[in-house]
Computed example of a mutant assay.
Amino acid sequence: MSDPSVLGSAVADPAPTPASSDAPDRARSLASDAWHDLRRRPLFLISVALIAFLLVLSAFPQLFTSVDPSAGDLARSRQPPSAQAWFGYDLLGRDVYARTIYGTRVSIVVGVLATTFTVLLGGTLGMLAGYHGGWVDNLVSRLTDVVFGLPFVLGAIVILSSFRESIGEGAVGITALVVLTMAALSWPVSMRITRSAAIAARDQDYVRAARALGAGPGRVIWRHMLPNCLAPVLVYATIALGAFIGIEATLSFLGIGLREPVVSWGVMISEARDYLRVAPFLLLFPAAFLAVTVLAFVMLGDAVREAFDPKGR
């Protein structure tokens, strides 16, 4: 749709130049151009719809079930799905459907927090390394290489095993420890992405102009470099969120992640692994929710990456 101001100028000037007719296209920013492209992508719309449903599920689980996920009855142990329990009952006679619904909150919260801490830590170090260069860049890069060389599962086992006893078995403490562990072992990817974007932005004319006008490093980074480095970090964060949800389930399955009384998909899958042959529904439903959630965030990340990539349009 044409801009009214452009139409008004066209009426006043019967012979507009070609440059003035192209002004709205040139004035469109990368973010607005990407958003305009995203709204036409079915992949983006489907993933957003799935994520919105999952967010409502996690925020208001009582709208979908009135059953207490922790209430059990051994007389109903491992009963298959029925009209009374759509997903059946687990080993302790607890409603699998209710536990799956309530498990959405913990899984998504862990993924969001782990992604936030990872992006903040890696993004801050990457921005400082890319802007200052020199010994700061060398120090951060060598630290990144050290963390990159540490296998994720091995590092998680060491950290979680070492600090679990000191924080006790409280749900909040264990969840916080799992989140911090994932962030501490995953920030190098965010750091490298931000560093590359910061190095590219550091040599641009608008950064040099800001320095020439006397702007300090903090202002240059916050007002000029950061807005132009957000696109690749946003793409990484979107994909990483789904990956962190899967990582939480993996750690819980290995017995070093979340545990009872926390209700999460990973905990449910870990509890069901010994009864796969006799009661496969115990693993099927939480695993299906986990797979759909990870797929939704990966689809969203792919759509955002293609929209922000000028070569993809």
Results as ranks from 00 to 15, higher is better:
Leu125Pro: 11
Pro227Lys: 01
Trp135Glu: 01
Gly126Pro: 12
Arg202Phe: 04
Leu154His: 05
Leu113Gln: 09
Val172Asp: 08
Gly216Lys: 08
Ile221Arg: 03
Ile167Met: 02
Asn138Cys: 10
Leu234His: 02
Leu139Phe: 15
Pro227Gly: 02
Ala183Asp: 06
Arg219Phe: 02
Tyr236Glu: 11
Val109Arg: 04
Asp205Glu: 15
Leu125Tyr: 13
Val119Met: 15
Leu121Trp: 04
Ser162Phe: 13
Pro227Ala: 01
Met182Arg: 00
Gly170Glu: 00
Thr115Met: 14
Val106Asp: 07
Gly133Gln: 10
Ala156Glu: 03
Arg208Met: 15
Asp137Asn: 11
Arg192Tyr: 13
Val220Asp: 01
Arg195Met: 09
Tyr206Phe: 15
Val112Asp: 03
Asn228Phe: 05
Gly126Thr: 06
Arg208Pro: 14
Arg164Met: 10
Gly123Asp: 03
Ser186Ile: 09
Leu125Ala: 10
Gly126Phe: 06
Leu139Cys: 07
Ala210Tyr: 08
Thr194Asn: 08
Glu169Asp: 13
Trp135Phe: 05
Gly149Met: 05
His224Glu: 12
Tyr206Ala: 09
Leu177Trp: 00
Gly173His: 09
Leu150Lys: 11
Gly126His: 07
Thr115Gly: 07
Trp187Leu: 02
Ala201Gln: 13
Gly173Cys: 04
Arg223Met: 10
Gly214Thr: 05
Phe163His: 01
Gly126Asn: 07
Asp137Ala: 01
Phe117Arg: 09
Leu230Ser: 01
Val147Tyr: 06
Ala171Cys: 06
Ile167Trp: 04
Gly216Phe: 12
Leu121Glu: 01
Thr115Ser: 12
Met182Lys: 00
Leu143Val: 14
Tyr102Leu: 06
Val233Tyr: 01
Leu150Asp: 03
Arg99Met: 01
Val235Met: 03
Ala201Asn: 13
Thr104Glu: 07
Val110Glu: 04
Val153Asn: 06
Gly214Ser: 04
His224Cys: 13
Ile221Leu: 14
Trp187Tyr: 05
Gly122Ala: 05
Val153Ile: 15
Met191Trp: 11
Ala183Met: 09
Val220Phe: 08
Met191Glu: 14
Thr100His: 08
Ser162Asp: 03
Ser141Lys: 15
Thr181Val: 04
Ala209Phe: 14
Pro227Thr: 00
Val136Asp: 04
Gly214Lys: 02
Arg211Ile: 04
Ser107Gln: 08
Gly218Ser: 09
Gly155Leu: 03
Pro217Leu: 03
Leu139Asn: 09
Leu139Tyr: 09
Val136Asn: 07
Leu128Glu: 10
Asn138Lys: 13
Ile174Asp: 04
Ile193Gln: 00
Asp137Cys: 02
Ala183Tyr: 07
Gly111Asp: 07
Ser166Asp: 14
Thr144Ile: 15
Leu180Pro: 04
Met182His: 00
Val172Leu: 11
